[in-house]
Amino acid sequence: MFIRLVTVALIVLTIIISHSFPWLKTPVIFSLCNGLAVLGVIVLIRAGQVSFGHAMYSCAAGYMVVFLARAYQLDGLLLIGLATSVATVFSALLGLFIVRYRGIFFGMLNLAFSMVLYSIISKFTTITGGTDGLSFTRPPLAGFVLERDAFETALLYVVLACALICGLLAQRYFESAPGQSLAAIKTNETRLEYLGISAKHVFWMGYLFSGFLAGLGGSLFAIAQGLVTPEAGYWVRSGEFVFIAILGGSGHAIGAYLGAFIFEFVRFYAAALLTGAWQITLGTVLIVIIFLAPEGLVGMLTRFRLPARR
């Protein structure tokens, strides 16, 4: 109940803020896009696994958007759909191999694949534009050709809708039979097998879903920015996703968005103050959260709720 309240408050706040302070529209969109990718990371954290390379799916979707937008005159929504599908298929294929591993192997293999993708994108300059990335002209959205400001507003609602739907879907997934089995991977895979449940299959489905979420976040991000650079798939990005996931907490889907908002706004306002020490800040905050509030913001919210109920 309390979390539902927070969700509604967050949605209302998002709409109010972006209408009264138009310059905040972009950071709000970016936070929601990041939130989607972070939700993907959270799915895996529920299985006790952490991926240090999940930005690769966002990055792959982003480049898909650019390639398609430059080659054909496609609608924005179609671009998002196609690019997300490609990222999902990509994660399904890679997942076939990666879901066999756990712990540091899982984390580092994801990192390894993301670095391979990053290097390929950076090196094949003729196709990918190298480290400068590729830009594209603003596509029409649902058939409407929009000016910059109207486009941003429309995109905001698209992103908000995606975030809401995916948040709900993720939450339902967490409470479903495959989702509960996914969380059981964290504690006892042997038992799962002895129930006749394939841990690999359960984990593969979770991985695919997380790839879908990261891909959706990445394609929306690309549309919002009108530009994609290899940085989108660099390990630093993946590290940020993991950071936000821990900050927000994996107990509930809302954690992804709460974490992403705080992250984006701290960066928006404090980046200038913290030039050169941004990673020191992130690292320190991460350590503090792990020691003091290992369940993140969601953990604080639910703990806050308990006394009121009893």
Partner: peptide
Amino acid sequence: KEHVLQLLVTFAAFMILED
């Protein structure tokens, strides 16, 4: 602590030392 958190703590230390 959980393995995930252990890994993340050293990752955090890595981020700090990089800066």
